[in-house]
Structure formats: C-alpha cells, structure tokens
Design a protein around this nucleic acid. Structure first.
Lengths: 342, 342
DNA sequence: TTTCTTTTTGCAATCGATTGCGTTAGCCTC
DNA sequence: GAGGCTAACGCAATCGATTGCAAAAAGAAA
C-alpha cells in the first residue's frame, strides 16, 4: 500500500525476486510466464503502486497508444473554442478513440509553415492522426499521405486527393438545402461563406447546381465571403443587407454564419422567415434551440467519427482503407418558413 | 527537401559531419555551440525534414511537454460530448496550454477503481494534471496531492482539502440567484441537482442560506435530485410537476438542468416566467439563445482556465501555489421574469 | 616556442522499459 | 545414470535522444 517515489520495474523485480524480463512479461500477460507466477507478480506490482513508464515503453515499442487529433486552424487562435462544430466533432472522436483503449492528443496547429504536418508526424508522439477540416492544406495533406499511412481527414472529397477522407457529401447537402428554398418560392438566394476553403467551395458548387437546375442564373452579388466566427459573419450579413441588393433567402455555409445572419436580419428589422428564409449547414446543437429554430443540413457526427476512427485503425494495421462519404439530411425548422415537410 | 523514412539524430550528425552531441546542442540552441554553426546545423536538419523523436526525448529529459486534462466522469460515457460546460472548459484550457507551448492530452477516466489517479500520474505521460470537476473523488484527490505537486482541480473549495483548486464561489453564486428570485416575490423555490456532488452541495448550501436569510424554511419536498444529462433532468422536473407540490420558481444546479426544466414546464402548460421563474448555473452559450433566454449564474471560464493553468505552471516549477476562487455574476434574462435590473 | 586559457567537440553513460537468444532447471524415457 | 526435450527465466542489446566530463583545438600571453 506504500506509494514511494517513482519506482521502476527494477524495483518490482527486486520485490518479486525475479529479473526485470520476467516482470515485464508478467505485466504484459505473456504466457511464457506460468499463470500463477504472473498473477503473483501483478499483485506485487499493483500493491507497490507500480505503473509502467510510458515514455520508456513508447521508445522501446515504437508505439504510443495515442491518436493525435489535429485542428489546422491557421492563425484563428480562438476558433477551437468558438466553433461548436469542431468541439462536438472532437468529443465524438475522443469517445471513439478512448473506447479503443487509446489516448487522445490534441494538436492545435497555429504555425502552418512548410512542413508543419511532417513535424507532427515525425515527432512520433502518436500512432495515428485525425485531421479535422482540410482548411487550406490540401497540398500538404496529399504530400504527407504519400509516406504516412495512418492518417484520416475529416472533410470534403476533392479532386486529385490521395489521402483518406471522411466527410459529408457537401454538394448533395447544399443542393438539398437550396432546392428546399426554391420549393418555397425563393428566387434570390444569397450564399454566405469563404470559397477559399475546399468544403465551402463544394457547398457553393451544390448551391450553383441547384440554381442552374431551376433555370436561374447565380448572381455574383449574392455570394458573400464570410468567416466562421460569429462576429465576422455578422458583419458580412450586415454588409449584404446594407448593400441594398435584393434577396429573399440566405444559404449559409455553417450554422454559426446562419445564426449571425439571423441576428443581423433581426437587427435590421427584417423578419425571418417572413421576409427572408435562412438555412444553415452542420445542424449543431444550438440550431434546434435558437429563435427561430434553424433549418440546417444535418451531418451525422457520431457516425462520422466512428467511420474516421474505424478507417484510421485499419490504416494503422497497414491496410490502405479508402475514403468514405456520408449522406447529409436536411432538417427543416422554422427559420425558412413553409411547412416542415417542405 | 527529401523526406526519407524516419531519420534519426545520428543521420543528421553524419550529414553535418559532427557528433550527435553537437547536433543535439545545436537544435536546442545551446550557446556552447557557436551561433553560425548552430544555424548551419539547424538548416541541415530542417532541410532533411528531421524532427526530434519525442518518446526518446521524454524518456531522457523526464519531461513530456504535455499537460493531461482529466474528466473523472465515472461511467457516464456520453457526458463529455453532451455537456457543453465541460466542452467549453476544455477548449479554454487547451488554448491556455498550447499557448504556453505544451501539448494537451485528454484523459477520460471511466474506471475510477482504487488508484486510478495514481495510475495516471505514474504513467509519466504528462508533466502536470488538470482535473475538471471533482466528481465524487475528493478523497482520491487529497491523497494524490500529498505526493504529486503539479495538480490543479477545477471545482469547489471543500473543507479538509489539501489539493489546489480553482472554482467559482458556488455558495455566493447560488445565494445571488436565489436572492434574485426572492426579490421577484417568489417564495416556493425548488432546487434541482445531485447533492452528492460537492459543487452541487455548495450550491444547495447557498440556496438554503438565501432562504434562511429571508426567514423562509427550506422545504425538503422542493429539493429534487437531478443528474446533468438533459434526459434525466427532464424526468426529474416532470416528476416535480406531477407531484403536485406547489412551487413558483426553480433554481437549477446547471443550465442543462434548467433548460430541461423549462421544456418540461412548457410541456405541462406552465408558463415561464409567468407562472414559474427559472434560474440556471454556468451560463453556457446556449443559455442566452434559448427561449426564453435563461437567467443564469455566470462563470468566467476564460479567466478560470487561465488561472488554472497559471497555478499549474507554478506548481510544475515547484512552487506550492494556493487555491483560487472566482466570483460569479448573475446574468438576468427573461426566464425569471422581472426587469433585467431586478 | 612554450604555457596557460578559453572555446569547441565528442565519448560514453543514462533515461526505463522490451525482447531475441541462450542458459538453466526440471521431467521423462530408455 | 545418460540423453533428450521442454518449460522458465535471465543476460544484454536496443529504442533515440541528452549531458557530464574530459579531450582536443584554438587563441593569448610570456
């Protein structure tokens, strides 16, 4: 029961009157050691409060029992905590990873200078990597994937992509959302989001396709750059409103942007959904709770996280598991008007 | 520019025509190596794509440059992802930790059998620990703190506590909330929360004190056990309503419980705040967005996280930094009726 | 040129485990 | 009692860095 300073395996060996090799094998339940002896040694170790030093173990085994979860957020220092989507995704990934007996190492990348991903990989701090969001790092990811197998990315599937990704079909999701707005009779539908981000570009593509399919010409004046943070998105929406460009609906690239837009509209005395319909993307928890409740393209994060981690573990086992795409679902709530059945 | 397999420091030494010692020192910016030589070696290493192996480094230095963030959630598997409070706290801690150049290791503890904390500590996976929420582990924490300095706990300050904690003054916060309800003329105020959790017990204490100060006798029938999850809290609220016990206000131990109560009340046709006032605790992001917006006791998590990490780093440096208490603030919104200044 | 400093540099031990391989002990069989 | 075989166990190398100490090189002073 005594818990003296950091005792090492050699100490346990002394206590049990055996060699370190034997202790190591006993603790690892190696059948080379007879069962009763194993139990005995395990008991002694536990009673002494001995725990294997993971640094030493990792070095020798070349394994860390740890998965790195990376958020390539660029210089957007506050985004991790401000974006509920990332947060929820992280939680679900953590669940999946810890369930499999691995630790979760959070890697926030603020310095995306040449070789950032290689620096993470070569540090050997983790046995596998999940990258949440491609950000603008498509090339870096492609490059890393050439030599590093245990890597799975949450994000859109892009052309010329060699890495393994899991993500919602952004085009289909956007298309569904915009089709719904068109079905409600909306014709001047604005798009809010940063086209520079690959996933957003895909959502924009779906938006354009939906318009074209309805024989409408996309109006560039209705495409407004908007970042993920509430404040900047609010600004973007305000500018759209003040520009005087007429519009009767907003399709936002994320729920945060949509919520910001709703508030900006409210502040300008525009009724949602009376005057303008609003649809978001992600269907984060707040979406259902906001006023009015937000119509949004739902992504099944629980399933996404499970898929990501499943693929990652296959890859860690040496298998070259392929990318996967999840089907999004439009959840209709009050913010776009019309009946819940569309 | 070539990025061959995992190259080691010895390889860089060969490339630079020096010994490993020199490479090691150069990469650590050790002034023992003349500046120009240092730069040269650093350049060679960078160009070769070399990165120090952290397992080896950790073993030798007995440091991991990693902080463990622990959620002792017992068997409540889903809580991490479902509780916005923990999530937000985690995000802010992550910010503070990464800003200081450390990594964040998430430790979800599901097995709280004897010695769980010791097992984490002795694994030497981290240089310091943040425990988020005392759960029911007061004793285990006290015991660990005797021999392990770099440990800071988010939670209430309890009697007989030897570990370092940072937390809101729960009694004062609760008192402020209940005083406000009393000021609105409410007299039959229910308390929803699990008294078994130390922090909640403190909030209950504040509740009792506020009532006593108003010459009211706390009615045990108005104290309802309610867990942190939305579903169980909803059930608890429903039972209170159906019990027929008259009440005109609810003070919930957390926002999630409060939101669940609001929905249960709405489902029962009870008007909030007309018939019943509701106040929560934590002031999570959703609180302001809900319908009606929730009055809540605000905890400054950004400041809390900063304080935690500041103290932790002091302790990691060997200093026996003391506990700290943050002052809560009541944020009045519509859910309790009355005027915002009320 | 010699001697004494001061600056650079490298050898080798070390961190704490894991594991291939060889040795010892135990048991059976003839 | 010798030989053969297997089950247990330990020696020592290894993982990839860091660093105390001493040696070598360079520079300064005499």
């Amino acid at each position: 029961m005594s818990e003296e300073g950091p005792l090492k395996m050699a100490d346990v060996a002394r206590l049990a009157n055996v060699s370190m090799s034997t202790v190591s094998r006993a603790l690892a339940d190696n059948p080379l050691i007879p069962e009763d002896r194993r139990r005995e040694i395990q008991r002694i170790a536990a009673e002494a409060g001995y725990v294997v030093n993971q640094s030493a173990r990792s070095l020798r085994m070349r394994k860390t029992q740890t998965i790195g979860v990376v958020f390539p957020l660029g210089h957007d220092v506050g985004q991790l905590i401000s974006d509920p989507f990332f947060i929820e995704m992280f939680g679900r990934l953590a669940d999946e990873i810890t369930t499999r007996g691995y630790q979760v190492l959070l890697c926030r990348v603020t310095d995306t200078s040449e070789g950032w991903l290689n620096r993470i990989i070569q540090s050997h701090r983790q046995d596998g990597l999940v990258i949440v969001g491609q950000s603008d790092q498509h090339e870096a990811l492609n490059k890393a994937a050439d030599t590093y197998l245990p890597l799975v990315v949450w994000g859109g599937h892009l052309t010329g992509q060699t890495y393994c990704s899991v993500g919602t079909d952004n085009i289909a999701g956007a298309r569904r959302a915009v089709d719904h707005l068109l079905g409600l009779g909306r014709r001047r539908i604005a798009f809010l989001g940063m086209l520079e981000l690959p996933e957003i570009a895909l959502r924009h593509e779906g938006y354009v396709r939906a318009l074209r399919a309805a024989n409408l010409d996309p109006d560039p004046a209705l495409v407004i750059p908007a970042h993920f943070s509430f404040e900047t998105a609010y600004e973007a929406a305000r500018e759209l409103i003040e520009s005087g460009t007429p519009f009767d609906a907003i399709f936002a690239a994320s729920d945060i942007i949509a919520l910001a837009a709703v508030q900006a509209l409210a502040a300008a005395g525009v009724d949602v959904p009376g005057d303008v319909s609003v649809v978001g993307f992600d269907d984060i928890a707040i979406a259902a709770q906001s006023t009015p409740p937000l119509t949004s393209v739902h992504q099944d994060l629980a399933k996404g996280a499970k898929t990501i981690v499943d693929l990652l573990f296959k890859r860690m086992a040496g298998e070259d598991a392929p990318s996967a795409t999840l089907l999004p679902k439009l959840v209709v709530r009050k913010s776009c008007g019309g009946s819940p059945t569309g």
